[in-house]
Design a protein around this nucleic acid. Structure first.
Lengths: 223, 223
DNA sequence: GTCTATATGACGATAGAC
DNA sequence: GTCTATCGTCATATAGAC
């Protein structure tokens, strides 16, 4: 039975080529902007001709789709790791604010360090491209992870239970997306650590925590 | 002296044509996405040939630049009107939170109703385009207006004076930009009034006010 | 001054030879 | 699987008609 093995080897090679195409595409997007992706440039860097890429991807948008899905999976893995400890059991944060600050910093840092992925994921920079159902599922998974984080924090009595979870998830994503957007749009050359926008994360998380923490009544609260 | 009059008429016609080109360009950007602007499409809709547009604009990026500058001027006029009363004297808001909610709602509403302008202004959707010094000045004016609003509110003892103004301006723009970004990226077809993201503005402004208002000590405040 | 005709080079994409 | 050849479209540039 050598036939299956040969097929496996072929498929492995094919997958490696696909991975390399995506890598080079991200490289080009990082240099020339997300909308500046050119299949000709990708082929040139890989030592091929443009039409050869069509063996692996049906269209330019299919390449964008792979970057989109890969981005959400990577962000999910990076940020989601904070929600679980090594054994995989649910983590019990001692204090709410330091925990949420760590989560937001981890996510925003990922977006600043992966600007091509992040812009494709958070903005709509490419006319005509919309994520496929498969790619969108990766985004939904990541949002669901954030949502279940808030469920967990609420069950631990760290967050108010009189506010709709949707509102917390929405305001949370507005804050993280807002920081990422202003940092990448206004000063894309600044790193996460030296960013003047990323530096406001502690203040923004403090506002969020004051508003939604369980203990006190944050605003207009009838004490 | 008929010559100057004829020149005036010509210049007026020229300015009208320029305005029309920008109008049609915004129309195309709204339909096909900001990066989907095609000078050929603009010329087609105006009943001209593409090269004729180059009489009025040096390049495609010059058209983007006009849209960028026009957008910031329009946003400035729309939002800045709230800061002054009819006579032009400084307005004295009775309550901080309703006032800031009105300002943020007015600004974000403008971005949702002018998505092409807003995306060009707040994101970086067009590879190779960077605003010229002139166009950038319009953006600086608008940001300065926001900053002076906070100066005024602080002088009126409505905002804390122990926090750097820069931080307030930064967190404020993060919130407004974040709402605009998530609404336009995730549900661009929803109007401002029916938007599920824009609906979180009251909660976000409440957080902001609780954190920065003068009276109480919002978080970790030593009472 | 205003527009058209024409040309160039890059792009995404397809067809077909090897 | 990779190539050459080709198509249509795009931004852009130049030359010249009116």
């Amino acid at each position: 039975m050598t036939a299956p093995a040969r097929i496996d080897r072929r498929q492995r090679r094919r997958l490696e080529t696909i991975e390399e195409i995506v890598d080079v595409a991200v490289e080009v997007m990082t240099e020339h902007g997300v909308g500046g992706l050119s299949l000709g440039e990708v082929a040139r860097r890989m030592g091929m001709r443009t039409p050869s890429l069509y063996v692996y991807f049906d269209s330019k948008n299919a390449v964008y789709d792979a970057v989109f899905a890969r981005g959400w999976r990577s962000a999910y893995e990076t940020t989601g790791a904070l929600h679980l400890d090594v054994e995989g059991t649910v983590r019990r944060p001692a204090q709410l604010e330091p925990y949420l600050l760590l989560v937001s910093r981890t996510f925003v840092r990922w977006t600043i360090e992966n600007p091509a992925h992040a812009q494709l994921m958070m903005w709509r920079p490419v006319p005509g491209y919309e994520p496929s159902a498969d790619a969108f599922a990766a985004a939904v998974d990541a949002l669901e992870a954030a949502r279940s984080m808030f469920v967990r924090l609420r069950d631990l009595d760290l967050l108010r239970s009189d506010v709709a979870l949707d509102e917390m998830v929405q305001t949370w994503t507005v804050i993280t997306t807002g920081v990422m957007t202003r940092q990448l749009a206004n000063a894309p050359q600044e790193s996460f650590d030296e960013g003047r926008v990323t530096a406001t994360l502690p203040a923004l998380v403090a506002m969020f925590v004051a508003h939604y923490r369980h203990s006190g009544s944050p605003t207009k609260g009838k004490k």
